[in-house]
Amino acid sequence: MITAERKPFDQIKTVTDQFENILVVGCNTCVAVCLTGGEKEAEILATQLRLQRQKDGIGGTVETVTVLRQCENEYVDAVAAQVAGKDLILSTACSIGPQLFADRFPQVRVAPAMNTNMLGVVKEHHVWTEYCAACGDCVIFNTGGICPIARCAKQLTNGPCGGSQDGHCEISKDIPCVWQLIYLKLASFGLEGNLSRISGPKDWSKANSGGPRTMKKEGFKP
Protein backbone atom coordinates (compact mmCIF):
# COMPACT_ATOMS: atom_id res chain seq x y z
CA MET A 1 0.00 0.00 0.00
CA ILE A 2 0.92 3.67 -0.25
CA THR A 3 1.61 5.00 3.22
CA ALA A 4 1.21 8.58 4.30
CA GLU A 5 1.46 10.40 7.58
CA ARG A 6 -0.50 13.39 8.72
CA LYS A 7 1.39 16.68 8.55
CA PRO A 8 2.12 18.44 11.81
CA PHE A 9 -1.02 20.30 12.87
CA ASP A 10 0.78 23.66 12.81
CA GLN A 11 1.46 23.26 9.10
CA ILE A 12 -2.14 22.37 8.41
CA LYS A 13 -3.41 25.24 10.51
CA THR A 14 -1.24 27.75 8.68
CA VAL A 15 -3.23 26.89 5.57
CA THR A 16 -6.67 26.30 7.04
CA ASP A 17 -6.68 29.52 9.08
CA GLN A 18 -6.89 31.40 5.78
CA PHE A 19 -10.18 29.80 4.77
CA GLU A 20 -13.69 29.98 6.06
CA ASN A 21 -15.51 26.87 4.92
CA ILE A 22 -13.45 23.72 4.81
CA LEU A 23 -14.17 20.19 3.66
CA VAL A 24 -11.89 17.52 5.12
CA VAL A 25 -11.94 14.58 2.72
CA GLY A 26 -10.87 11.14 3.92
CA CYS A 27 -9.74 8.33 1.65
CA ASN A 28 -10.80 4.80 2.55
CA THR A 29 -8.12 2.89 0.68
CA CYS A 30 -4.34 2.97 1.31
CA VAL A 31 -4.34 5.65 4.00
CA ALA A 32 -7.24 3.95 5.76
CA VAL A 33 -5.34 0.69 5.76
CA CYS A 34 -2.26 2.43 7.15
CA LEU A 35 -4.56 4.00 9.76
CA THR A 36 -3.74 7.62 9.06
CA GLY A 37 -6.25 9.10 6.62
CA GLY A 38 -9.43 7.02 6.48
CA GLU A 39 -12.86 8.10 7.62
CA LYS A 40 -11.98 7.85 11.30
CA GLU A 41 -8.86 10.00 11.02
CA ALA A 42 -10.59 12.52 8.76
CA GLU A 43 -13.28 12.97 11.41
CA ILE A 44 -10.69 13.39 14.16
CA LEU A 45 -8.84 16.03 12.12
CA ALA A 46 -12.08 17.85 11.40
CA THR A 47 -12.98 17.83 15.10
CA GLN A 48 -9.51 19.12 15.97
CA LEU A 49 -9.88 21.92 13.44
CA ARG A 50 -13.27 22.92 14.80
CA LEU A 51 -11.93 23.01 18.36
CA GLN A 52 -8.87 25.01 17.29
CA ARG A 53 -10.91 27.50 15.27
CA GLN A 54 -13.37 27.89 18.12
CA LYS A 55 -10.43 28.63 20.44
CA ASP A 56 -8.85 31.05 17.95
CA GLY A 57 -12.12 32.76 17.13
CA ILE A 58 -12.16 31.76 13.46
CA GLY A 59 -15.63 31.48 11.98
CA GLY A 60 -16.89 29.26 9.20
CA THR A 61 -17.47 25.55 9.01
CA VAL A 62 -15.40 22.38 8.98
CA GLU A 63 -17.22 19.43 7.50
CA THR A 64 -15.98 16.01 6.55
CA VAL A 65 -16.69 13.36 3.95
CA THR A 66 -14.84 10.23 2.96
CA VAL A 67 -14.59 8.53 -0.41
CA LEU A 68 -13.48 5.03 -1.18
CA ARG A 69 -10.44 6.10 -3.31
CA GLN A 70 -9.30 9.60 -4.07
CA CYS A 71 -7.37 8.34 -7.12
CA GLU A 72 -10.50 7.78 -9.23
CA ASN A 73 -12.39 10.56 -11.00
CA GLU A 74 -15.76 8.99 -10.33
CA TYR A 75 -15.29 8.75 -6.58
CA VAL A 76 -13.95 12.28 -6.38
CA ASP A 77 -16.79 13.66 -8.52
CA ALA A 78 -19.30 11.89 -6.28
CA VAL A 79 -18.78 14.41 -3.48
CA ALA A 80 -19.50 17.50 -5.60
CA ALA A 81 -22.47 18.34 -3.39
CA GLN A 82 -20.30 18.41 -0.28
CA VAL A 83 -17.63 20.45 -2.07
CA ALA A 84 -20.15 23.10 -3.12
CA GLY A 85 -19.76 26.26 -1.07
CA LYS A 86 -16.40 25.28 0.37
CA ASP A 87 -13.31 27.45 0.16
CA LEU A 88 -10.80 24.70 0.84
CA ILE A 89 -10.62 20.97 0.31
CA LEU A 90 -8.24 19.40 2.82
CA SER A 91 -7.39 15.87 1.73
CA THR A 92 -6.16 13.16 4.06
CA ALA A 93 -5.21 10.92 1.11
CA CYS A 94 -1.73 10.42 -0.27
CA SER A 95 -0.66 13.28 -2.51
CA ILE A 96 -2.68 11.80 -5.38
CA GLY A 97 -5.93 12.70 -3.67
CA PRO A 98 -5.52 16.47 -3.35
CA GLN A 99 -4.09 16.61 -6.88
CA LEU A 100 -7.10 14.87 -8.35
CA PHE A 101 -9.44 17.09 -6.32
CA ALA A 102 -7.59 20.10 -7.75
CA ASP A 103 -8.11 18.68 -11.25
CA ARG A 104 -11.79 17.93 -10.78
CA PHE A 105 -12.77 21.04 -8.82
CA PRO A 106 -10.59 23.72 -10.42
CA GLN A 107 -12.47 26.57 -8.75
CA VAL A 108 -11.74 25.37 -5.18
CA ARG A 109 -8.41 25.61 -3.35
CA VAL A 110 -7.01 22.26 -2.29
CA ALA A 111 -4.46 21.35 0.39
CA PRO A 112 -2.85 18.12 1.49
CA ALA A 113 -3.14 17.14 5.14
CA MET A 114 -0.64 14.35 4.61
CA ASN A 115 2.94 13.68 3.69
CA THR A 116 3.13 10.66 1.40
CA ASN A 117 6.10 8.53 2.28
CA MET A 118 6.38 5.08 0.75
CA LEU A 119 5.06 1.86 -0.69
CA GLY A 120 5.22 -0.46 2.25
CA VAL A 121 4.07 -3.44 4.22
CA VAL A 122 2.66 -3.83 7.72
CA LYS A 123 5.58 -5.28 9.68
CA GLU A 124 3.45 -5.42 12.79
CA HIS A 125 0.38 -3.56 14.01
CA HIS A 126 1.17 0.16 13.78
CA VAL A 127 4.57 -0.41 12.06
CA TRP A 128 5.08 -0.07 8.30
CA THR A 129 8.27 -0.64 6.29
CA GLU A 130 9.20 0.42 2.76
CA TYR A 131 9.40 -2.49 0.31
CA CYS A 132 9.07 -0.92 -3.14
CA ALA A 133 10.39 2.21 -4.86
CA ALA A 134 8.28 1.88 -8.02
CA CYS A 135 11.47 1.88 -10.12
CA GLY A 136 9.72 0.37 -13.12
CA ASP A 137 12.25 -2.47 -13.62
CA CYS A 138 11.93 -5.12 -10.92
CA VAL A 139 15.08 -7.08 -10.12
CA ILE A 140 14.10 -9.05 -7.04
CA PHE A 141 14.31 -12.53 -8.61
CA ASN A 142 18.06 -12.08 -8.65
CA THR A 143 18.16 -10.75 -5.10
CA GLY A 144 16.28 -13.45 -3.23
CA GLY A 145 12.94 -11.65 -3.29
CA ILE A 146 14.37 -8.60 -1.52
CA CYS A 147 14.40 -5.17 -3.16
CA PRO A 148 17.79 -3.41 -3.08
CA ILE A 149 16.32 -0.25 -4.61
CA ALA A 150 13.74 0.43 -1.91
CA ARG A 151 15.62 -1.09 0.98
CA CYS A 152 19.23 0.01 0.39
CA ALA A 153 19.94 3.62 1.30
CA LYS A 154 22.24 3.88 -1.75
CA GLN A 155 19.97 1.87 -4.06
CA LEU A 156 22.98 -0.28 -4.93
CA THR A 157 22.49 -3.05 -7.43
CA ASN A 158 25.86 -4.62 -6.57
CA GLY A 159 26.11 -4.51 -2.80
CA PRO A 160 26.94 -4.42 -0.07
CA CYS A 161 28.97 -1.30 0.34
CA GLY A 162 31.66 -0.75 2.94
CA GLY A 163 29.12 0.73 5.30
CA SER A 164 27.57 -2.63 6.09
CA GLN A 165 28.36 -3.20 9.78
CA ASP A 166 27.44 -6.42 11.59
CA GLY A 167 24.39 -6.79 9.41
CA HIS A 168 23.28 -3.16 9.86
CA CYS A 169 23.34 -0.23 7.50
CA GLU A 170 25.83 2.42 8.51
CA ILE A 171 23.10 5.05 8.64
CA SER A 172 21.26 3.43 11.56
CA LYS A 173 21.52 0.39 13.77
CA ASP A 174 17.74 0.02 13.34
CA ILE A 175 18.07 -0.58 9.62
CA PRO A 176 19.30 -3.96 8.46
CA CYS A 177 21.81 -4.01 5.59
CA VAL A 178 19.63 -5.27 2.77
CA TRP A 179 22.63 -6.76 0.96
CA GLN A 180 23.42 -8.83 4.04
CA LEU A 181 19.80 -10.05 3.91
CA ILE A 182 20.13 -10.77 0.19
CA TYR A 183 23.37 -12.71 0.77
CA LEU A 184 21.79 -14.82 3.55
CA LYS A 185 18.68 -15.49 1.54
CA LEU A 186 20.59 -16.59 -1.57
CA ALA A 187 22.88 -18.69 0.66
CA SER A 188 19.82 -20.51 1.98
CA PHE A 189 19.27 -21.73 -1.59
CA GLY A 190 23.05 -22.38 -2.09
CA LEU A 191 23.10 -19.52 -4.61
CA GLU A 192 25.39 -17.05 -2.84
CA GLY A 193 27.86 -17.56 -5.71
CA ASN A 194 25.48 -15.65 -7.98
CA LEU A 195 26.56 -12.52 -6.19
CA SER A 196 29.99 -12.72 -7.82
CA ARG A 197 28.35 -11.84 -11.15
CA ILE A 198 28.12 -8.10 -11.63
CA SER A 199 24.68 -6.71 -12.43
CA GLY A 200 24.74 -4.40 -15.39
CA PRO A 201 23.66 -0.76 -15.28
CA LYS A 202 20.01 -0.32 -14.25
CA ASP A 203 17.64 1.41 -16.69
CA TRP A 204 16.48 4.34 -14.58
CA SER A 205 14.45 5.77 -17.46
CA LYS A 206 11.67 3.45 -16.40
CA ALA A 207 11.69 5.06 -12.99
CA ASN A 208 10.63 8.60 -12.25
CA SER A 209 13.99 9.80 -13.69
CA GLY A 210 12.47 9.31 -17.13
CA GLY A 211 9.83 11.94 -16.35
CA PRO A 212 6.25 11.39 -15.23
CA ARG A 213 5.10 7.95 -16.26
CA THR A 214 1.90 6.94 -17.94
CA MET A 215 0.75 3.35 -17.98
CA LYS A 216 -1.44 2.03 -20.76
CA LYS A 217 -3.10 -1.31 -21.21
CA GLU A 218 -4.33 -2.94 -24.37
CA GLY A 219 -7.81 -4.33 -24.60
CA PHE A 220 -11.47 -3.39 -24.78
CA LYS A 221 -12.34 0.26 -24.58
CA PRO A 222 -15.87 1.46 -24.28
Binding site: V33, L35, G38, E39, K40, E43, T66
Partner: peptide, 11 residues
Protein backbone atom coordinates in the same frame (compact mmCIF):
# COMPACT_ATOMS: atom_id res chain seq x y z
CA UNK B 1 -15.43 -4.49 24.60
CA UNK B 2 -15.42 -1.96 21.77
CA UNK B 3 -11.73 -2.08 20.94
CA UNK B 4 -12.26 -2.97 17.26
CA UNK B 5 -14.80 -0.19 16.97
CA UNK B 6 -12.37 2.43 18.25
CA UNK B 7 -9.61 1.20 15.94
CA UNK B 8 -11.46 0.61 12.66
CA UNK B 9 -10.05 3.23 10.28
CA UNK B 10 -12.95 3.08 7.86
CA UNK B 11 -15.74 3.17 10.44
Amino acid sequence: CGICFTQCPAK
